[in-house]
Amino acid sequence: MQAINWILRFVGLIFLILFQVLVLNKLNVGTYAHPYVYPMFLLLLPFNTPKWVMLPLAFLIGLTIDMFNNTPGMHAAACVAIAFLRPQFIKFYTPVTGYENVKAPSISQLGVIWFALFTLTMIFIHHLLYFFIQVFWLKDLGLVLLKVVFSTALSTMLIVILAFLFASRKTRL
């Protein structure tokens, strides 16, 4: 069961990367909104994923996106950071009932509000780091912040929608 779960996760990952690179990166939603949904894979990993798996995985996924985007290191840096901070936020968002019997973040078990808040926080950090690394110097601070805000909103919305789609497919299986 565990193995099948991981295979499904990696199929999902390939879908996410292709969706990101071939569809979302070519989308022109205005100057400020550039959605990145591929970190969703990192968000959905089981709670007990060890750090030595999580961090290198985050690095490799980020690097793959970087290769397509010609932004070497930028997505990798942002991904490693959210992978590193994830356990803290999972702890911070512990529901009143705790995480009993819940193995990984999911809408069906933890509810839309929990999932959306968790996604929003992680994506916000990812985008904040990414867009700041991209510009590097603190010029155009306003422009960068606008990009972060609009892109975070759009990415979070897309991830919640995708999570609904994935979830319904899993319950049917």
Binding site: L55, P56, A58, F59, G62, A77, A81
Partner: peptide, 8 residues
């Protein structure tokens, strides 16, 4: 890992 990323 962050070191490698920033090096890149």
């Amino acid at each position: 890992l962050e070191g490698i990323a920033f090096y890149l």
